[in-house]
């Protein structure tokens, strides 16, 4: 049964990489069931994350957000700050797609804080970039410029000309 769970997970990932997002969802849902049977919270967290990603490419952003929130909840329970940061970043982008810029900003700010804590300058740059866009969408141009300038400073520091 444990091996079956792993097989479903690998199958789901393969379907995802092939662009078969509905089949990826079906496989990851099976993987999730087995993870819960075993009380395997790490596997459950991975399944939620993979499901969230698949729903993004299916255009079902509300579903994606729900799975990313579960990913975030488990990341906090498992005290995994890197995954917590990744979840917040995913939620920020998902809420941008949903045009809920206030929620997007909330999650991107959370991502920013963790990225700074983890000395992740690339993550910090991404957060600032995202925040600049979200604040622009809200018409808060002072904050938008603030974060856009931070993004520029970090990009120069990292040598990312793009």
């Amino acid at each position: 049964r444990a091996a079956q769970g792993r097989a479903y997970g690998n199958l789901g990932n393969t379907h995802y990489l092939l662009g078969n997002f509905r089949k990826a969802v079906m496989s990851h849902e099976q993987r999730l069931l087995i993870a819960r049977e075993f009380g395997d919270r790490s596997a459950e967290r991975r399944a939620y994350s993979n499901l969230g990603n698949a729903f993004i490419f299916l255009g079902e952003f509300e579903m994606a957000a729900e799975y990313y929130k579960r990913t975030l909840q488990l990341a906090r329970q498992l005290k995994d700050r890197a995954v917590e940061a990744q979840s917040c970043y995913s939620l920020g982008n998902t809420y941008t797609l949903l045009q809920d810029y206030e929620k997007a900003i909330d999650y991107h700010l959370k991502h920013l804080v963790i990225a700074q804590e983890l000395n992740d300058r690339v993550g910090e740059g991404r957060a600032c970039w995202s925040l600049g866009n979200a604040y622009t969408a809200l018409g808060n141009h002072d904050q938008a410029v603030h974060f856009a300038e931070k993004h520029l400073d970090i990009s120069r520091e990292l040598g990312d000309r793009n």
């Binding site: 997970g9 690998n10 990932n13 990603n53 993004i56 970043y89 941008t96 995202s130 866009n133």
Partner: peptide, 26 residues
């Protein structure tokens, strides 16, 4: 169409580009 317009937010597009290869492995 409306959703596609929002994919043109460059930071979101960059995230989605990364997402195409993002799988949590067993």
């Amino acid at each position: 169409v409306q959703r596609m317009n929002f994919i043109q937010v460059d930071s979101v597009q960059r995230w989605m580009d990364d997402l195409t290869l993002m799988t949590e492995c067993e």
